[in-house]
Amino acid sequence: MKRLTFLPALAGLVFILYIVLPVVSIFLNINWSRFGTTVRLPVVLQALQLSGLTTLVATAVTILLGTPLAYFLARRSFPGREVLDTLLDLPLVLPPAVAGVALLMAFGRRGLMGSLLAGWGISLPFTTVAVILAQVFVGAPFFLKTARNGFAAVDTSLEAISLTLGKTPRQTFFRVTLPLAFPALFNGAIMTWARALGEFGATIMFAGNMPGITQTLPLAIYMAMDSNLEAALVMAALMVLVSFAVLLAVKKVAPGGDGHPFP
């Protein structure tokens, strides 16, 4: 009988090692005495700044535009809703390269939308805006999906009761629906942010690679691999730390998913 519990335990241990080992290796290979100087390299600082800025903007844009849509999808049924739902989920499964090509075809200078914008003298590729567009494209579905489920889980009779208590639909949304769906929205926003932070393929294809303008952390790490491994490791370590801290914080702050958002 002992073997029966031993083997699964071993399997679990192997799996944990498999995840932990590469992450730890990053930290073991860093020359900590030079850490301070490496972090202050322009290429590192610029990438940190740019990633911080673009991911925050991308997440904010997603929340602003995505929240009404998620609410709409959760509350209304209309012909073709399934199709629309699926379309909006699509970036979840598309390889980043497909996202990059798609964005170029749409917002590139000769793209559907891009050629229109070009008429007004606006060109998106190779700009920080393009970085944000790429991040929103690949990250937004996470928010939309969780927010939609969060809104759908709010009992509509609570909203109806709020209306009969003299609150307008707007007041009802902000005082009942939003607070009740908040844990889901928060989780969705964090997932979108994390996905935006890691975005690489669509960015390098659509926004290019320019330090300070479009070179986000993942791109900087990729480029530094060939020229300055030290810097690549330091940036990788920073990403690991930030991601870990955020994921842990989310678990502590918003228990969400367990069905009791208000203990």
Partner: peptide
């Protein structure tokens, strides 16, 4: 509905789970 000034109670009490008793009562 919000301009009719009727009170409405259903079989399911439908209290707002994120508010305590007094805030539920004074909600309107």
């Amino acid at each position: 509905p919000y301009r009719r000034g009727t009170g409405y109670c259903l079989q399911h009490p439908g209290l707002f789970p994120h508010l305590d008793v007094s805030h539920n009562i004074t909600y309107g």
